[in-house]
Design a protein around this nucleic acid. Structure first.
Lengths: 259, 259
DNA sequence: CGACTTATGGTTATATTAACCATAAACCAG
DNA sequence: CTGGTTTATGGTTAATATAACCATAAGTCG
């Protein structure tokens, strides 16, 4: 249902002469600042918890609220570059998995819109990332706080970031089922149990028991047995496997597990 | 790999004093115009072809090139509104299925960026739509041509629109498998054969033969038999069914067919 | 009327899934 | 060093789902 905001339009035509080289001269076209907000997940394998990275804002709007890490896109910078910059500025990580999520851009989603002199809109191109928890180092730079939050304890966030987070979580669950992102955040070699742990902490239990999960994964033929055994505490030593990206190619977009 | 375009940055700081109320005063933040480009599909049930709507540009850049229908977002207009506007301005249709696709926003994707006085970037929030072919009426308004192109005969398009189209086609195929979009573009009541035709023209043959497709669809329990029979030319009359949206709810995100 | 065409409702072999179970090979407590 | 515990591994089996067919029903068409 197109709802043309006649209020904004008329104000605009009143203050901006038709053909002046003014940024709003196009009459009714909106001007945007574009932000990149990233839902950064990691899995705490020790405590079997899914974590999301939040930063504490110290500027209006939403001062003292937690929010998703983000940045405004700079001149000459692509959206991907900006998203990468968020990752490397906040956590020192070799970007493990990153993908665009959704673009939120309704008017009035950012309080700065009404505050600014010009009628500037703020657009958020959200991304979601999955990083290896052990390989990250938090950098509290330009923010008054930064922390990994267990997903279950995320507070009310700034802007529409709770909505973005929910969407990112959905996408993460989906990715895990249909693509081998898990192997991007697992170490080079890992046990089948490591994989299962990762899947259960993100997806919950109840998609397959361990035994069936094993056989399915092995039958896919995307794991190479290194022959090396590892013993971690009690129990029989487990084989270490390596992900075979080539073998996975033909299986693209085929479900790996079922819920 | 963040590649900060230092050239753009320095030019900017030369022409814009640090704290002036100029749109580029923020120093290194880029200013954007936001476009909405929509991949509009429909299925020609007569000729069993998948069609996509293209418009012929008559303005630089890419004058005389075919392109996806699009529009620049206006003041006070949400992204969804803009996408809706594209649909209603180009084809008179009660928007049947519409969803956001991907946001393309690298620098230099639009030639206008270098031509403009200000260093304005053009962002494209692409959408994809599936409409009922029979319910559309093309409106050649503000363009020098508008046409339904069979997907197989799409020429080279303006901007990066071929890429967007490819992505949209992928998404369409995916949607058809996992969600009941098909019933949005089918008439209120339809035969099982109608559904099968739609699926094969989009997905190609080879996911199920007709008989198995029928039993699967019926076993899902999302179709109500109206009891009414329809006879179209030769052959035994077929039952007319109606889609039961409520019955589908619990099946959300479960595959309906397999390739 | 007989031939053809399309819809419908099976059947059957094969593959997949889900729910178990038995054994192997480590550790650990006494 | 021995029996109990723990974890990994490699099955088995019944229930389901899939894929490839086939037979019949009920119309149209010549």
């Amino acid at each position: 249902m197109p709802t043309t905001n006649t209020k904004g339009k008329s104000i605009d035509s009143l203050i901006a002469p038709a053909n002046a080289p003014h940024p709003l001269a196009s009459g009714e076209l909106a001007d945007f600042k574009v932000g990149v907000d990233t839902v950064i997940f990691s899995v705490d394998t020790e405590q079997h918890r899914l974590l999301v990275l939040l930063v504490l804002r110290h500027q209006a709007p939403f001062s003292d609220y937690w929010s998703l890490p983000g940045a405004l896109v700079r001149v000459g910078e692509s959206l991907e570059d900006a998203a990468d910059r968020v990752l490397t500025e906040k956590i020192r990580v070799n970007n493990l998995y990153l993908e665009q999520l959704f673009t939120f851009g309704g008017p009035n989603r950012d309080p700065r819109e009404s505050a600014d002199a010009y009628n500037v809109r703020y657009l958020s191109v959200s991304h979601f990332a999955l990083v290896r928890f052990e390989d990250t180092a938090l950098i509290a730079d330009g923010v008054s706080g930064i922390a990994w939050y267990p997903l279950s304890r995320v507070p009310q966030l700034a802007f529409d970031h709770n909505q973005i987070l929910t969407y990112g979580y959905q996408r993460l669950r989906n990715k895990l089922q249909y693509s081998p992102v898990a192997f991007d955040v697992l170490p080079e070699t890992f046990t089948l149990s490591d994989v299962y742990q990762l899947y259960t902490t993100v997806l919950g239990e109840g998609f397959s028991d361990y035994s069936n999960f094993r056989t399915r994964l092995l039958k896919l033929g995307i794991l190479q047995d290194t022959g090396v055994k590892t013993s971690r505490g009690a129990g029989r030593p487990a084989s270490l496997y390596r992900f075979d990206a080539e073998a996975f190619e033909p299986l693209k977009d085929r479900p790996m597990v079922f819920l």
